[in-house]
């Protein structure tokens, strides 16, 4: 698609000062959890952009900080977690330090969120119609009748059959896949510009997963809604995302166009991640395995957080922390790709 100029650019690059700022810009984000035994840094120096209508996949192991990044963007970090540094910009406007009331205006209306488990995302005591209309009325200045009509339209759009009857049903009367469709309809209530989908298919049957992903992708194309798709399912990412960001121990390991990252991963961690996916029909005796486990947040190694598990690690990896550096079409935080002698300015 020609209207996606930013899709292929790296994370730190503002293509030119005159250009319109990206839809979402995360700059040097740092999230801390103050505790009795010292402060844990859960997200450290994470920067990336999301363009209008773009689907950014975000992968990594459990605890890598994917969901936390999503929660920080929509302003729903659970205390004591807090944004300790960096900024989050929506159309160039900072939103990470807005007062609660102003943040509520953004939540649901400009940035929506979909959670992992559709079975627990809906309030069991209210009909889906009640939950849809209250969300619509919270954001749009229309009457109850118009809100209900919009709710019906949304249910039709997400593929709920016989919406006129289903709208008055309670969540427990829907199957898992249908509930996730309702959750998506709820996210779309006020036509947001960005949806953060936090593992939207993990809790669903495999056959239903594909339907939900297809639905999400179709809706985003139609509405030009951007999506941050948090998952640890590389298959979903490969099928759906335009770009992919790989997280490791609260940092970005690699970010770039999805085809490049999947087929020619630059960062050793990404390589290990891709190699660990079984491929149908491929004649492989053993899957690649990354030795060891992701470090705990209170014991993140010096230098590159991945170096103790990295086969290619050398002296510099232990001492100096790598920033994201251009590695062909992607950008990787790895000293295998040191900046060229005449580097572009790093922000």
């Amino acid at each position: 698609m020609s209207q996606r100029p930013l899709a292929a650019t790296g994370a730190h690059v503002h293509s030119s000062p005159a250009a319109e700022p990206p839809l979402l810009s995360v700059r040097k984000l740092r999230i801390e959890f103050p505790g009795r035994r010292g402060t844990l840094v859960a997200i450290d120096d994470v920067s990336f952009d999301v363009a209008r209508g773009e689907i950014l996949g975000m992968v990594g192991e459990s605890g890598a900080g994917k969901s936390l990044t999503g929660a920080a963007i929509i302003g729903l970090l659970e205390p004591p977690g807090r944004i300790a540094g960096g900024e989050i910009l929506l159309h160039g406007e900072p939103i990470h330090s807005l007062p609660p009331a102003a943040m509520r205006e953004i939540r649901g209306r400009r940035i929506a969120m979909i959670f992992q488990d559709p079975l627990t995302s809906l309030n069991p005591l209210f009909t889906i119609g009640q939950q849809l209309t209250e969300t619509i009325l919270a954001h749009l200045d229309i009457g109850l009748q118009a809100a209900r009509r919009r709710a019906l339209d949304l249910l039709t759009e997400v593929g709920i059959p016989a919406p006129e009857q289903r709208i008055d049903h309670y969540p427990h009367q829907f199957s898992g896949g249908m509930r996730q469709r309702v959750v998506i309809a709820l996210a779309l209530c006020a036509a947001p510009e960005l949806i953060i989908a936090d593992e939207p298919t993990t809790a669903l049957d495999v056959s239903v997963q594909a339907q939900i992903i297809a639905l999400l992708r179709r809706l985003c194309r139609e509405h030009r809604t951007a999506v941050i798709l948090v998952t640890h399912d590389m298959g979903v990412i490969a099928e759906t995302a335009d770009r992919v960001a790989v997280m490791y121990a609260g940092r970005l390991a690699e970010i770039g166009p999805v085809r490049e990252v999947v087929q020619h991963p630059r960062h050793p961690y990404t390589r290990g991640l891709m190699g660990s996916i079984p491929v149908l029909g491929a004649d492989v005796h053993r899957l690649v395995q990354i030795d060891g486990a992701m470090p705990r947040l209170n014991a993140i190694p010096t230098g590159c957080a991945f170096h103790p598990r990295c086969k290619d690690a050398f002296e510099r990896c232990r001492l100096e922390r790598p920033d994201l550096m251009a590695a062909g079409p992607t950008r990787a935080a790895c000293w295998l790709y040191p900046p060229s002698p005449n580097p572009e300015p790093t922000p």
Binding site: I74, L76, P100, R104, E105, I106, R107, G108, R109, A112, M113, F115, Q116, D117, T120, S121, L122, N123, P124, L125, F126, E134, T135, A138, H139, V183, L186, A187, C189, A190
Partner: peptide, 26 residues
């Protein structure tokens, strides 16, 4: 702490609606 309360917040409902409509009834 439940998901549907988090989701209600993420939908941009007011604190009053979240606390006294969604949470209290449950």
């Amino acid at each position: 702490r439940t998901d549907y309360i988090k989701f209600a917040r993420a939908r941009g409902l007011s604190d009053r609606a979240v606390h006294f409509r969604h949470a209290l009834k449950n």
